[in-house]
Design a protein around this nucleic acid. Structure first.
Lengths: 231, 231
DNA sequence: CCGGAAGTGGATAGGGCATTCCAGTTCGGT
DNA sequence: ACCGAACTGGAATGCCCTATCCACTTCCGG
């Protein structure tokens, strides 16, 4: 699971042992905090949780995006793996449905990841690469499920993102007061994905528009309060 | 539309004319700000938008909940009215579907209202009364649509709240980058609500649990940052 | 075991937000 | 026109957040 992989993961000279230790503590703390509070958690709160000075945070992770990338690398791996598993399923519909359920469960278990799936982080190369990799798998999966006549013909890959957004909404709103509510919503969506379609749908959003939306959201989380606009 | 109705709307002696004018400006400003930024907008930003001193805000609306109640009174009226319209429809399924579309459109047009529909504000009597009134209408509507054999039998009133939460998630995530994405999600959900059901669903959340969730959310928006928990 | 590079945390600047206080202003009945 | 009550805005307090700086500490190769 690449526990020691760092963003650049490259030639940059290795950290001194104590620095490496602190780095790990920071990532672990961030994992906890993001899971609990979502991506809106502050850098400061992560530093506190890690028991480390604020400066240490910023030296190691100058931007929240880098921290997010480090924290969710393994979740993204699991996400990509889940697509692989789905592709291995001899029944493509069963594979797709299982994949969607699995991923939504991951969102329910980690508020931070719920957010991550509705955003895009252009500078987090490794993360986005995994996402694209998963995307390609999903496209295949969709094609096969349609070919098998189990998935409605007008289903698009963008619909998957919409599912993530809707699920994030339910998960965030219900919290642990109704921890299983998302399952019902996801089941409902899955049923309407089945072929034959019960009716036409409004157009799927343009991929570019959706990308813009995801970008906007990540910027809102990772570089917040602008000077405040005036009338 | 009760433009001049105030929360208590009662015997409390009338405001001085200048105070009343400021009050109106505050409510108008809050309407604008909440619509644009959702309920997380700060009291301070509303005061700025209104061009009024901060103290004036707090004297008139000591809690954000009261401001929210004043601002969304008319939206809640429209919400209740929409149920009435739906009940007048000779085709109960058509009525229900139209209602859901209408309300989700209201959410898309007003981020603040999108939030309001996923929260509950115990002290805002008028608001909650309207909500309950709408709720009763919805229960009837559901009954009729089931009786007409058009709505799946396991549909519950709580599902409507889940729709609001999911829709809020989509609306918030897409913003104006993909302003119509919600329509597709809502259409999908509607199709899966149709009878006959395509399969069983996980249980609907308990009404009490859902209430707790909605309460939690409103508290998060109206009385935020607790001291920060420690490890 | 020693010295410099690497690393550390606290202090600090700069900004936002909620909330309270108060000296000055405006309203409106007489 | 007057005067007290009602009302006003800004200043002050206290907290949290991002980001940077810097004097001090720790590591580790020679």
């Amino acid at each position: 699971m690449n526990l020691h992989a760092r963003p650049g993961d490259g030639p940059a000279q290795p950290l001194r042992s104590d620095a490496e230790r602190n780095r790990a503590r920071i990532v672990a703390a961030a994992r906890t905090v993001f899971r609990r509070d979502g991506l809106n958690a502050s850098m400061a709160s992560v530093a506190r949780e890690a028991g480390v000075g604020i400066a240490t945070m910023f030296r190691r992770f100058p931007t929240k995006e880098e921290l997010v990338a480090a924290v969710f690398a393994d979740r993204m791996d699991a996400y990509a793996d889940a697509v692989g598993t789905a592709l291995d399923d001899p029944d493509p519909w069963h594979g797709l449905a299982g994949f969607i359920e699995t991923v939504c469960a991951m969102q329910a278990a980690d508020y931070g990841f719920a957010d991550v799936l509705t955003m895009t982080f252009p500078t987090a190369k490794a993360l986005e690469e995994r996402r694209n990799q998963a995307y390609e798998g999903v496209v295949q999966l969709i094609g096969r499920a349609k070919a098998a006549g189990r998935l409605r013909e007008d289903f698009t890959p963008e619909d998957l993102v919409l599912v993530h957004m809707a699920n994030a909404g339910v998960v965030n709103a219900t919290g642990d007061a109704a921890p299983d509510a998302w399952k019902r919503v996801v089941a409902l969506m899955l049923q309407s994905f089945q072929a034959p379609a019960r009716g036409p749908l409004p157009d799927s959003p343009e991929p570019r528009a959706l990308y813009k939306a995801m970008l906007r959201a990540s910027r809102a989380s990772c570089a917040p309060p602008e000077p405040e606009r005036k009338g």
